[in-house]
Design a protein around this nucleic acid. Structure first.
Length: 110
DNA sequence: GCCATGACGGAGC
DNA sequence: TGCTCCGCCATGG
């Protein structure tokens, strides 16, 4: 059993065409902002969990590469582009445009 | 049970 | 504007 369940649950709430930052996920998952745990959780996520990990990026709107993941930054970018997310020339996402805005009554814990 | 590491974030220089 | 350092918590050896 892992405490990552909350993290996965939150990530699964991210709608198509939108993205969320690690810090945002951490907050929604009641981690208080411990983005590291989110990154670690996504690090050990597997396709079996059916978690849209590709919609989670860092606070800079960039995709963090992970050579150990089954999908590299190229795949993540590709998946996002398929969902309608546009990347800047620097390979960054406009958080101001695609950042997921969770409802005020988001069931982070309940 | 302790030590080291990790898809980050924010402040400081 | 860009880089570096510290902090936070959980997992793995």
């Amino acid at each position: 059993m892992s405490s990552y369940e909350a993290i996965y649950a939150v990530v699964r709430q991210i709608p198509v065409g939108q993205v969320a930052t690690y810090g945002q996920i951490a907050q929604l998952a009641n981690l208080g902002g411990q983005a590291r745990l989110v990154g670690y959780a996504l690090y050990r996520v597997t396709p079996d969990l059916a978690v849209p990990w590709h919609r989670v990026i860092n606070a800079k709107g960039e995709i963090s590469e992970s050579p150990f993941r089954y999908g590299n930054d190229q795949l993540q970018r590709h998946l996002l582009e398929q969902e309608g997310v546009q990347f800047s020339a620097a390979g960054k996402v406009s958080l101001a445009t695609y950042r997921w805005q969770p409802p005020s009554d988001f069931p982070a814990d309940a």
